[in-house]
């Protein structure tokens, strides 16, 4: 199969996985994050399934297929600050980037509002990091 077809298949599987797992439903996500409420552990099952398949596949195929090595980098302040901000935004709306984009096809208003402002936030962060590196 050509590279483009495999990439498309990969995208299809990702979107199907998000929808099947219920992660395109923002309340299912915020219910996972709501420890003081009626806690819903579904998101933990999603992470477990994804980590199991990806982690095992990576472990067994890394050498054979010459996959990229461990991408670990020293912990930076931007990693911590960025991850805190991401968690705050995630908790507010129940959207992380994948599910927000996945909801575009179903013309969901919140996703149509979220994705453009997300793009703007990404542009600002990437501009800041670039100017810091160059400066």
């Amino acid at each position: 199969m050509k590279k483009g077809a495999l990439v498309f298949l990969s995208g299809l599987l990702f979107g199907a996985g998000l929808a099947l797992s219920g992660m395109t439903d923002p309340k299912r996500v915020t219910d996972f994050l709501d420890l003081a409420g009626d806690w819903d552990p579904t998101l933990a099952f999603v992470m477990a399934g994804a980590l199991l398949v990806f982690g095992m596949g990576y472990f067994f195929l890394k050498q054979k297929l010459g996959l990229p090595g461990n991408p670990e980098e020293p912990v930076s302040r931007s990693l911590i600050v960025g991850s805190i901000l991401f968690g705050v935004g995630w908790g507010l709306g129940g959207f992380c980037p994948g599910p927000a984009i996945a909801n575009l096809g179903a013309i969901r208003m919140e996703a149509l509002v979220f994705v453009p402002t997300m793009a703007l936030g990404m542009v600002i962060a990437q501009w800041l990091q670039r100017s810091r590196k160059e400066g």
């Binding site: 509002v113 994705v115 936030g121 990404m122 962060a125």
Partner: peptide, 10 residues
């Protein structure tokens, strides 16, 4: 939330 998620993730 979109703005914060976009900035934070990148």
């Amino acid at each position: 939330a979109g703005l914060i998620v976009g900035f934070g993730t990148r």
